[in-house]
Computed example of a mutant assay.
Amino acid sequence: MTKYVPGIIISSILLMLLLFLDQKIYGGIMPLNLLILLLSLHVIVYAHLMQRQKQRIRYVVFVCLFAVCAMLSLPKVTQQAAEELALANYPMLITAKQSVPMERSLNPFKPNRAYVFEGIDKEQQSIVVLVNPDTGDVHVLD
């Protein structure tokens, strides 16, 4: 059991960093399913590959695979950038920020949530603007 402890610690730290990044930068829309699966596998891979000197190359390959998957999982638009896009296209006073589910995709790197900003426009009308985190497209919801 003790051979799994270093892998558990490393995976836990990486998971906390990913969750922090997701909440603070991307507003909770980052697709984390594949990354959490890889972090779970990391515990086993670390325990079995790091004990043998000749297996360390395979461990490095696994870590590189995780890094590539993490980079591909980053949405193209951050929450701050989405807010700026919404304000640039539809001048308004934002009263609420949230995320809503989008169409599901089989692509594990594509976000399945979108940014939504509620506010009041120039004419004092209520407006709801949706920003797609993958493309940056801005739409007004009726």
Rank of each mutant, 00 (worst) to 15 (best):
L35H: 07
V45I: 14
H48N: 14
E103P: 09
F66G: 11
R52V: 15
S105F: 05
Y90N: 09
Q23S: 07
K97P: 10
L65K: 03
L32E: 09
A67L: 13
E83L: 01
Q79V: 08
A70N: 13
P101A: 10
L41F: 11
M50C: 02
N132Y: 07
L85T: 00
L41Q: 07
G27Y: 06
V77S: 01
V68A: 12
A86L: 02
C69N: 06
Q80L: 07
M50Q: 03
F62M: 06
Q98G: 10
A82I: 09
E83D: 01
Q80G: 05
R52K: 14
T78G: 08
A96H: 13
L85D: 00
K24V: 13
I29K: 05
L49C: 08
T78W: 00
V128N: 08
I25R: 09
L21P: 00
V61P: 12
Y46W: 12
V77L: 00
F66K: 09
V43R: 05
I44T: 14
D121N: 14
V63P: 02
S40G: 07
A81H: 01
L19V: 13
N112Y: 08
S73L: 03
L74S: 06
Y115Q: 00
V128K: 15
M30I: 06
R58D: 15
G28L: 03
E118P: 14
G27W: 02
K97T: 08
Q124L: 14
G136M: 02
E123Y: 10
Y26H: 05
L35R: 04
S40I: 02
L74N: 05
A88K: 04
L21Y: 10
I127F: 03
D134S: 14
P31D: 08
N89Q: 11
F62P: 04
N107Y: 00
N132Q: 07
L93C: 06
L37I: 13
I25A: 04
